[in-house]
Design a protein around this nucleic acid. Structure first.
Lengths: 241, 241
DNA sequence: AACTCATGTAAATGGCTTTAACATGAGCAG
DNA sequence: CTGCTCATGTTAAAGCCATTTACATGAGTT
């Protein structure tokens, strides 16, 4: 299977054979190097070994390529989050935290995707497919929030799952975009972005009345844990770790 | 005072007289219209009524102009937050919420500044003046967090103010950049960004053990309010408002 | 073998960025 | 008032991009 164009160099007939993929990959590389702004259509073409006009056979324009990348990004994002969620196993809170870490890991490991998705300035709502992909990703977060909300302690008004989902997303996105980028993060922190987010989410959940000492105590809100006395000896922020 | 170049039109000698300011203003307009990416140096020059090369007498290049704008943005930002904080009057929690609203208002009303500050891709750390301005703005948030932390309920480990500040900033930035932009916000919400953030912060503070029923009960943690039973009848999210 | 259509290329247009050489005129020295 | 000088503008030009149009290639089909 190595007979076709090997590395876009000399060996390649008139036709590339897989240009669309090559362009997406090239763009991804370029974006991770120079940001979504620095990326140029011509560069991607050059990197794929074709003329500057060739990409137009596969993408209406530069923005469409960017949109495609963002869309793929959302798809991978959804996939990654779904795996992390693992349908709430072994228990809802643990799984939820895993999702948070997966979120940050994605932002860190796939800065190109992440910036295409959230910082490229492309109008998400203008592209139905893109928006659908985006919503599928968010749906995972919402589903997880739903499960969390369902195990809210009894006797208190149950928090709207949608609101929780939006809050969680905001926290994750806030941490990721302020501190968690692979690009050598913008600012110095007293703790890792992962820890920062984890503490934040735990505090938030505690604020909703959830027990946050994480045990497989799921599905069993029988013993009324009304509210953990707000910080035993193991708060969400340990001693200077 | 209206004799000088009035609107960059015909009446203007060889020299503009105030080009630097005019360029900054023009860039600001352009960015708010087309985003930090769509903004072009040449456009700004045109808008100011000068040749495309003129701006180079005032800014090394396009990026320096962007940095200048970001810096001014941070300065205004700091000013706005400082006013909102009002040194914690009438009480810490109220003032704190005002800061949150001011944060979102800034992002909404000054999208050009906000995107130059957080989404233009300019490396903050490379420009000392810019970074300093950024840190002064953050210092305000940290100072407020410090005050909040100081009034933490007794008997529980006091949360690190720095961590709180980072958390609050993440929440505000997360909400602002996901939902709170003037550009017709990216997604539909069941509640306003302001309410979303307020609820989030309240839940978070409650998670830290703070009383969140907001009264001028400051400075007076005498009557031990250990923890409000996590959601009386007035949770941070009212009935569908 | 001839056809056709997707996929590439070449060349041209129009912008933008940036630089270099030149022009203006505002402020200051005499 | 007369000149000088330097900050501030202008023109012109090089080099890069995006995008379009006309043309070329060749893979798959008939």
């Amino acid at each position: 299977m190595s007979w076709r164009k090997d590395q876009g160099r000399s060996e390649r007939g008139y036709h590339h054979g897989n240009l669309k993929e090559a362009l997406l990959q090239a763009a991804l590389d370029l974006i991770s190097q120079k940001g979504p702004a620095g990326f140029t259509f011509a560069d991607a073409a050059r990197m794929a070994g074709v003329s500057p006009a060739a990409p137009y056979r596969h993408f209406r324009d530069r923005d469409e390529l960017l949109s495609s990348i963002a869309q793929r990004g959302f798809e991978q994002f959804e996939s990654v989050l779904t795996q992390a969620w693992d349908d709430g196993r072994p228990d809802t809170v643990t799984a939820f935290e895993r999702v948070g870490k997966a979120y940050l890991a994605f932002a860190r490991n796939e800065p190109a995707f992440y910036s295409a998705m959230f910082e490229s300035g492309i109008p998400v709502e203008s592209n139905p497919a893109l928006m659908a992909a985006s919503e599928r990703a968010f749906a995972l977060i919402r589903a997880a929030a739903e499960r969390l909300a369902a195990m809210a302690p009894p006797g208190v008004p149950r928090p709207p799952a949608m609101m929780m989902a939006l809050h969680i997303w905001s926290m994750a996105h806030g941490v990721a975009s302020l501190f968690g980028r692979g690009d050598g993060a913008r600012r110095k922190l007293p703790m890792s972005p992962d820890d920062l987010l984890e503490a934040q989410v735990l505090i938030y959940l505690r604020g909703l009345g959830f027990p946050t000492d994480r045990r497989p105590s799921d599905q069993k809100p029988s013993g009324p844990p009304p509210v953990p006395p707000a910080g035993g000896s193991s708060g969400p922020w340990g001693t200077p770790k």
